[in-house]
Design a protein around this nucleic acid. Sequence first.
DNA 1: CGCTCATTTGAGGAACTTCAAGGTCAGTGG
DNA 2: CCACTGACCTTGAAGTTCCTCAAATGAGCG
Lengths: 237, 237
Amino acid sequence: MANLDFCTAPFAESNDTKIFGTADTAAHFAKVFDGNATLQRTLSALQRGPVRFYQDSVIALNEDVADYLMFVVRGVVRSCKVCKSGNRSIVSFYLPGDFVGWVDAKLSLSIEAATDTELLFIKRKGLVSLASQNVRLANVLLTATTNELARSQEHVLLMSKSAKCRAATFLSDLWVRLGKAQYLDVPMSHQDIADYLGLTIETLSRSITDLDRAGLIARVPARRLILQNHFGLRRVN
Amino acid sequence: MANLDFCTAPFAESNDTKIFGTADTAAHFAKVFDGNATLQRTLSALQRGPVRFYQDSVIALNEDVADYLMFVVRGVVRSCKVCKSGNRSIVSFYLPGDFVGWVDAKLSLSIEAATDTELLFIKRKGLVSLASQNVRLANVLLTATTNELARSQEHVLLMSKSAKCRAATFLSDLWVRLGKAQYLDVPMSHQDIADYLGLTIETLSRSITDLDRAGLIARVPARRLILQNHFGLRRVN
DNA sequence: CGCTCATTTGAGGAACTTCAAGGTCAGTGG
DNA sequence: CCACTGACCTTGAAGTTCCTCAAATGAGCG
């Protein structure tokens, strides 16, 4: 990450004095580090941010990821790959509280803002050496990595199911990851979801319509859904 | 892993005195640990095995994986999931030199022998505490985990491609992972490959036939292939 | 309101699955 | 040695799912 300021003004804003300035940041960090304030303070020396990115801006290309680890404070980040034929696939979505950066160089993925986003940047080298002295931090990192592996493996499993099942599972998982609120405000575009699920937007739309007609979800204006039968959603096949 | 000896006699054989008794084991460990003999000796105290398993036997269920990490010495291990509808999916194949065991409990996968197999069992707790004192070991484990994550993400990307591309990429990857020998002796059954690629065996067979007719591979009796145009294989779409 | 962009809906075609049959090969017994 | 068997792979034909292309509808915004 040669230059953190390539995100276009005026949205871009890097303010080191506000690292724990927002309630969101503090809350997510507390959750991840289990309230270990000492660890948080030690880490703050390695951090830069929060840095903001507009929707659809490129946060990092593959080679950048080697130097920095990112922590999502607000918004949604996607890691994606566009192959020669022009088809795009989204490998993973990162929500607030997730670490971004265990991305293999061989895959040459691009890390992008799926919505307007706020991220912390953490120097990877410093973090790793810190982790070698601090078992708790090492465990946090190991947990983050294995969680990401588990999500990726679930993603693999999902990809061999029917379109309707993929859509239902995606919505249900998203609802859980976002904290099981009354409404599910889907933050990313249908195109992003379709690319994540290996479907076209048309098939995704038809699948969602089917789930609606089956009474499993209800549509509310403005990309908002109500999961009316969460148990049923998980049984779709 | 309450009992390591549940693999059925007479194939099952646990012989602690032979931990580094075979050339294979020594070679793979040397590769993984970069020739660090001290580390190998330290680890041997935590190990048990090699333990042998017949093809298709269950090595471990999900809950077992929490206690032990496994290291593949010989053969192929698969991690798979059978869903309620009866469809089986294979999440990952593990070849000699791979670690098995970063499997999330939520997925409830079953670890099985895709061929006759030989594995080392390593106590996870001991390994983790050792890694917290030994940066080199910690790096080996982190590398193993991130490698597995990268493979899983590649798997995700593969699942949204055509059947022919999936088959071609699988064969090419397998050839590379097995050391780019003149012949590719495919160790696992077509059913296993199909379940890994999210295809039926019929579609897989037709795809392989297409690759053969296109001159990219050649079939030799007994599950043996020659990758005649490796570059071309990777361009199939 | 009128523009743009995202989503939905419809009709036809391609890809993959399903079902069914045939082929290959190693092991077994006559 | 040869036929028989069973497991595994291959091939064919019909059906389903999903994609492609095209058009309509809806939502957000100046």
